[in-house]
Simulated assay, not measured.
Amino acid sequence: MDTFHKLGIIPGKALCYSGFREGQKPGGVYPGYEEVKEDLLLLKDHWKYLRLFDCDEHTRTVLDVITREKLDFRIMLGAYIVAEMNNFNCPWNGGVYSEEQLTENRKSNIDKIDKLIELGNQYPGIIFSLSVGNEACVEWTDHYVPESSVLEYVSRVKAKAKQPVTFCENYAPWILKLEKLAAGVDFISIHTYPVWEYKHINESLDYSKQNYYSVAGKYPDKPVVITEAGWATNSNGRGINPWHVNEEFQMIYFEKLMEWVEKENILAFFFEAFDESWKGSSEPLEPEKHWGLFRSDRTPKMAVRKLIQQE
């Protein structure tokens, strides 16, 4: 716990937030000011920390709303870096690019890292940490970036911004191969998804604990944050057994996880605030679309219904 306090981080209620609604998506139509304001007013009494995934128009709107409406949020801001190497292990139609595209991606990534630094410096009272990427080193990713490049980005941000720097990744690479990166970041950020690994709800919390403690045990002198942990509420069978997902199971996992991390003083971002229909395939039951604690129309699912109705 002392290491967290040295970084200026006090564990509290934390949530991944992406506000894209029906008909909106990154690179297309972005949520407007009033839409983001509606979201943040819905979340403000229940969560202190929000995680944002990229330095895009959406993030700038979120920071603008927090500033102008004087909302008490603290933000973990990420830069979404894209592929700098081909990954032939990617199990879906992705991960392989032309050399020209990879060169362009590298330039784009440097621009994103510089935007991350710029926003960190512009909003030092709101942004409490900076992440140089998301799931870019795991074996199945479609946007593979070598550890050496990620380390370069860590150094670049550390030299020009004051916030603690991290990298958000599935728990497994931290155990298997990211020792140099672990040494370079200020704290380690892991993702744990029992349902993606075919675990039943009865095994869920124990499995997430195992994921967390395996990384924390490997790096005893480095703080470990859970930057994603969640439970889907629908599946078309792609990667997740449909019988393993529903609102009741999400509620069970959410409540058990929050009870554990609060007891152990672990900062854990639940994934995620709202369902996002733009994600994944066009199939309505695609699991990528159904991780929200709220539906895309902002009505609460079972896990947070009592919380919202108490207002």
Results as ranks from 00 to 15, higher is better:
residue 229 A to V: 06
residue 219 Y to I: 03
residue 233 T to L: 10
residue 222 K to P: 07
residue 204 S to A: 15
residue 219 Y to G: 09
residue 200 H to S: 15
residue 203 E to F: 08
residue 230 G to E: 03
residue 213 Y to V: 04
residue 198 Y to A: 15
residue 195 V to R: 08
residue 200 H to D: 15
residue 226 I to A: 09
residue 213 Y to E: 09
residue 235 S to A: 10
residue 226 I to N: 05
residue 220 P to W: 02
residue 219 Y to Q: 02
residue 203 E to S: 10
residue 211 N to S: 15
residue 198 Y to T: 13
residue 212 Y to S: 09
residue 218 K to P: 11
residue 211 N to G: 14
residue 231 W to I: 04
residue 236 N to Y: 01
residue 204 S to F: 06
residue 197 E to N: 13
residue 232 A to C: 12
residue 223 P to D: 01
residue 218 K to V: 07
residue 218 K to C: 08
residue 198 Y to N: 15
residue 195 V to F: 12
residue 212 Y to H: 01
residue 199 K to T: 01
residue 213 Y to G: 06
residue 216 A to C: 00
residue 196 W to M: 14
residue 199 K to D: 05
residue 236 N to W: 03
residue 234 N to D: 11
residue 221 D to I: 05
residue 221 D to Q: 12
residue 227 T to Q: 11
residue 211 N to E: 09
residue 208 S to W: 00
residue 222 K to R: 07
residue 199 K to G: 07
residue 235 S to C: 10
residue 209 K to W: 06
residue 205 L to M: 06
residue 212 Y to C: 09
residue 233 T to N: 07
residue 200 H to G: 15
residue 210 Q to K: 15
residue 231 W to F: 04
residue 229 A to E: 06
residue 232 A to W: 06
residue 204 S to D: 08
residue 233 T to A: 09
residue 237 G to W: 03
residue 227 T to Y: 04
residue 225 V to K: 03
